[in-house]
Each structure stands twice: as C-alpha cells, then as structure tokens.
Design a protein around this nucleic acid. Structure first.
Lengths: 245, 245
DNA sequence: CGACTCGTTGACTCTCTTCAAGGATAGTGG
DNA sequence: CCACTATCCTTGAAGAGAGTCAACGAGTCG
C-alpha cells in the first residue's frame, strides 16, 4: 500500500480482469440489481472505484455535482453545516445505498467516510445518458428517491417532536433494521459512528446521547460490550420507547 | 352549493367541454408542463378534479396509496402523528406541487386542506403505466423528488439545529420564495396556515411561534397587517436571522 | 348575542444544553 | 514494552431556551 494519496482512486476498467460488477456482493441490494448482464457491462465502463479512510470527504456541499456514488462497503455520513459550525447529519449510508439522488447542479450536502469505505463512482452526465437507455434504472432510482423521502419524513418527526430517549431508541432500532436488511443479524449491532455523529444526527448533544445510552443500559434494554457495538437485549421495550418513552 | 358531501369529486371527462388541461393555469409550473398537447390529452383522460374545504383530508397515513394528486389551487399540509397525538407537519404544498411522489404501497403521511383546495387526482396504477410511455414525465418526477429531498434536508437542519427565531425566519423566507416562484410578488405574504400549523411544522409550540413573531414585529423586521398576511419589511435582516439569529 | 376558535401574553417548570472535569481507549514513539 | 498524548466517552453541576399551564382579547359563525 502506498502512503499518501488523499482519496485513493483506481480505474476498474484498466485494472481488473472480467466484469467486477457481476461478482459484486451488493449488486442485488443496490440499484445495479435491475440491470441485465449486458447492461451491467455498459454501466461498468463508466465506473471507477474509490477508497476512503475514516474522516475523508467524498463530496462537499455546494460543489458542482460531477459524480454520484454507490456505497460498496463501509459507512458514509451526510451532513449540512450552519455558518457558525452547527452541524446536522441528515443520514448515514451503508453498503448498497445510492449517494447523490438529488441530481441537482450542486451537492446539497457534504459526505464523509465514517470508517473505511469503498465506493463506485459514476460521472453524473454519463449516468444520466444511460438512464435514457435503461428506463428500468430510472424507475429504480425513482423508487429509491421515494424511499429516501419516506425516511426523511420519519426523521423530521423525530427531530421535531420526539424526546431524547425516543430519538436514541429510534436510532438504534433503525440501525438494526437496516443491518437486518443487509443480512447482518449478528448478536451485536455494529455502531461505527461516534457519539458526536449520533448527536448531530438526532439533534442532541454528545452528552445527552451518552446519558441516554447509559439510561438504556441501566434499564437492561441494551448492553454495550465494546466501543462500536451495542447489543439489543429487549427489542420490544426498545420499540415501545421509540414513540412513547 | 349542496350541503354535505365529504370530499366533493367531479369527473372532468364527463362534465366539461374541451381539454381543461390545455387551459390549466398551473400547467407550466407543474409536472404536466413537460407533456405535448396530445400527451396531455392522454393524461387528461385519467384525471378527476377534487375540491376540498379547509380541514378536509385528502389522504391518510397508512391507507393504500391508490391515488396521487396535483395541487391546482389552495394549500395542503402533510403531517405525521405519534400515538399520543404529537404532530409533525412535514411540508406545505401549493399550486403546481405534486402530492404523492413517495409511490409506495401505502401513504407515508396524511394530507389535509389548509384552505379551499382544488386537486387533480390520478389513479396511481394508471399514472404508472403512463410513465412507461412518457419517459419525460418520469424524468420530471425524479427531478421533483430530488428537489423534495433537498428541501427535506434543509428542514432537518432547521429542526435539529436552529433556534426558535431562526426557524420562524427561515419559514417566512421560504414561504416568500415559494410565493415568488409562483409569481405572487404582492406587498404582503399570504400565510394561510394557523400558528398551530406553523408550530407543528417548525417543531415548536404555538406560544413560542406567537412570541417569536411578536419579537420580529417589535424589531421592525416584519409587520402583521391582517390575520393570514405578513409583510416582510427588512428582507436582508430576516435572511440573516435564518442562520445566526 | 353567546360559543367557539385562534392568537397573544404572563408566570413558572423542565428537559436538554453548557461548562467542566475525569476516565477509558487507541495509537505513537522512545 | 511502556509512558505519552490525543480523542472519545462518561458523569456532574449549573444554566437557558423553549414548553406547560393559565388567562384574556379579538374575530367568526350559527
């Protein structure tokens, strides 16, 4: 591994044999899943792979939206900033998620790696012309956008009306559900983001998040075996706490 | 006018001469604007017009999503409820806005008329099959969804991180911008929604909204000539208050 | 005209934030 | 291998912004 090289980028077309897409582990859960092998090959030709380390930036709010991405592995956080530094994380993206549905001229938010991340990068213009050829893909993106809107509305309800305990419970249940959808049903829930990330996602402070997690721990609802992992001990109870805690 | 008749519905195809779509005032600012006259005629055949009075419900969260709508005139509020009655209004829709982009199996939120409202109703299934014929329309819907996502993210920033004064200022500026986009540049800004609606949109209480508006009034930033109208006297100041007030 | 809803204002309360400090953990370099 | 440091997480005490409870004025409708 070479030492310094900010966002490490490699051109798959130039560097690998066969079609990496056909072997892609997340193809079926991502937007690529709707394409036939020959269509996939067309898509592959415009893709580059990007590797990010924790803390590196994928896109910056306000920049010209030249590329969109598919998350192959790892966790990305999306966020917006106020001039004085207050931050709101608007979402986390995991393997299979599509980053950049908001196909406007500039990015509406910044995106930063939470841990080691691998992305597929598509030049936006090229992807757009592929959309005209593959209506299935466009339909899938519309579905993806619809989903994101539903999630966004749930988050508005959380941010506008829920208590701290309800927010943290909702966050944990949401994380667990998404992990399950990706087939990760381990004993422990992976929580790669920091308390500060969680706080900025839930509209709280790190202190309040920490205190609330302690509360849930003391109530026996969850356990915290290691940093970065949480065990849900009383799923039902946690579910109840989401909207009446 | 006949007395009781919950959501009054009339079938345009059966009841009117000519194509009402071609004379539609909001066509150009709505999704219909991308269609040619002949395509518009195809669309017209699946449309019914719906009239709602203030307080009447267009769709209810959880119901099967049979129809989608285009707002012709008036104001609609979208909201989600918690079991104990806490409400979060996730958005307001005005003339030209498309209601129901979240094309899932059930509605993710409820929608209620704020004032007198006229809607175009499309059966979802029929619209979906038209989408396959008119890729322009699908593309336009995707753009609309992307826009809504951007707005939703701004709202998350507001709900998670802004103070009461910043929220109210943002709300007023946002209302004014949307009115301007619809060509309504009058001296006064129309504010058809109640304080309670504004509060539930901004994640505040009616009392806090009221006190904040009073503050802005006392600061000379706005004036409140009548109920339902607000005059923005210092546009720059209000803009500044959106993110550092 | 009385009942109702809506908006405003006041006094008090409370949840979450702010400020502060200590403890756990991981990475670094001698 | 172990001190050294930086960062993250946790906990405590005090404070503030918005919420709650309550009352009142204004406009509206039957």
């Amino acid at each position: 591994m070479r030492p310094l090289q900010p966002p490490k980028t490699r051109d798959i077309a130039a560097g690998q044999l066969g079609s990496p897409c056909s072997a892609c582990e997340i193809r079926e859960i991502s937007v690529c899943g709707v394409l036939s092998p020959s269509e996939l090959e067309r898509l592959r030709q415009i893709i580059a792979t990007v590797h990010l380390d924790a803390g590196q930036t994928a896109i910056s709010e306000g920049d010209e939206a030249a590329d969109v991405f598919n998350v192959v592995s790892g966790t990305i956080k999306l966020y917006k900033l106020l001039p004085d530094g207050r931050r709101q994380i608007t979402g986390f993206m995991f393997a299979g998620d599509f980053l950049g549905i908001a196909l406007n001229e500039t990015y509406a938010y910044s995106a930063e790696a939470v841990d080691k991340v691998q992305l597929c990068r598509f030049p936006r213009r090229k992807l757009e012309s592929l959309l005209e050829e593959f209506p299935k893909l466009e339909r899938r993106l519309l579905g993806e956008a619809a989903n994101e809107l539903v999630v966004a509305q749930d988050q508005m309800l959380l941010l506008g009306r829920k208590t701290a305990r309800e927010r943290v419970s909702s966050f944990l249940v949401g994380l667990a559900d998404r992990a399950a959808r990706r087939g990760r049903l381990g004993e422990n829930l992976e929580v790669p983001m920091s308390r500060s990330d969680i706080a900025d996602f839930l509209g709280l402070t790190t202190e309040t998040v920490s205190r609330t997690i302690t509360q849930l721990k003391e109530g026996g609802v969850i356990a915290v075996p290691n940093r970065g992992q949480i065990q849900i001990r009383q799923r039902e109870k946690l579910h109840d706490l989401m909207e009446s805690g």
